[in-house]
């Protein structure tokens, strides 16, 4: 049985004046999937998200959501979507509870239904004890959880999250991830943008790597790592101003060498072995680290830049 297509975009282009933010991408997302857009700031992720949210219209190309055209069926599409934008834009003057209740009203939900759901969502977002506090007084992590809870008030079939954990401390991030796993288990389709590779690895079944408005790679996180990187990476730092000078000296030890401003990365299969060989050859880095390959390495390989550039 083939899964139901919930989002299908063909040759999607978004232009703002002469600036082309999205340059003709193709994306297909199935029901129940958790799908990621990984890329640095300015890659065109948010523009893509806004088109998938049926909020902004593509300049060129077509997009269908639930098989509907956002140009003509915007309200009917958005009724079935939950959107968590980068900015919380909550009603700061209102209480946590009223924020959720009012949002439910925008979906034409009866008050009785809204009240029931609000109690569940407060529990889900771990905000029950703060229900009657003004939103202005909440911490950043709490506001973010409230924004996600708000996006769930209409029990959406797709939840779209734009940089959901940017600016949160590690503890708040893990709590959020946990909530998102729960939604995934309940069958909600998740569409997530992030510039954190660990987030993409943790949450996404499948993802596309975006750079400068185009898709440079697509697949499951593990598949991408296997395809574009080696099993392990040796990170070496030297006490020097220019790591570039080590490029040629280290090339014989690795399949590929990447030089960053503050360190050299060696792409190898057995990191510890490589490290011993380097020491044996009389090369002495000031620090050395062996780790597994990540999506960060995939991105570096594909674009020549790091995700946080």
């Amino acid at each position: 049985m083939t899964a139901e297509r919930v989002v299908e975009a063909r040759h999607l282009v978004k232009r703002f004046g002469s600036f082309e933010a999205v340059k003709g991408i193709d994306v297909a997302i199935d029901r129940g999937e958790s799908f990621g857009f990984l890329g640095p700031n300015g890659a065109g992720k948010t523009s893509t998200m806004r088109m998938m949210s049926a909020v902004s219209q593509p300049t060129e190309g077509t997009i269908t959501i639930f098989g509907l055209d956002p140009r003509t069926d915007g309200p009917d599409i958005r009724r079935r979507l939950g959107v968590v934008a980068q900015e919380d834009s909550l009603e700061l003057e209102l209480s946590v509870r009223l924020n959720l209740e009012m949002f439910g009203r925008y979906f034409d939900l009866p008050r009785r239904v809204v009240r029931e759901r609000v109690d569940e969502l407060l529990d889900f977002a771990q905000l029950t004890e703060r229900a009657d506090d003004k939103v202005d007084n909440l911490s950043g992590g709490m506001k973010r959880r409230l924004t996600i809870a708000r996006g769930l008030i209409n029990q959406p079939e797709i939840l779209i999250l734009d940089e959901p954990t940017t600016g949160l401390d590690p503890q708040a991030r893990h709590l959020l991830w946990d909530r998102l796993y729960r939604l995934k288990r309940e069958g909600v389709t998740l569409i997530i943008t992030t510039h954190y590779m660990d987030e993409a690895e943790q949450l996404c079944d499948r993802l596309v790597v975006m750079d400068r408005g185009t898709i440079v790679a697509e697949g499951a996180p593990r598949t991408l790592i296997e395809r574009y990187s080696t099993r392990e990476v040796v990170e070496l730092r030297f006490s020097t101003d220019d790591h570039e000078e080590f490029h040629s000296r280290l090339s014989p030890f690795a399949e590929r060498v990447e030089v960053l401003p503050d360190r050299v990365l060696l792409y190898v299969n057995e990191g510890d072995e490589t490290l011993m060989e380097i020491h044996a050859a009389g090369i002495t880095p000031s620090s050395a680290l062996v780790r597994r390959s990540s999506l960060e390495d995939v991105f570096l390989h594909l674009t020549g830049r790091t995700l946080t550039d």
């Binding site: 909020v55 979507l81 934008a85 009603e91």
Partner: peptide
């Protein structure tokens, strides 16, 4: 300033 409408437009409101 508060971008109140941005959130509203992700609902069926036009």
């Amino acid at each position: 300033i508060s971008h109140t409408y941005d959130a509203l437009l992700s609902t069926p409101l036009e």
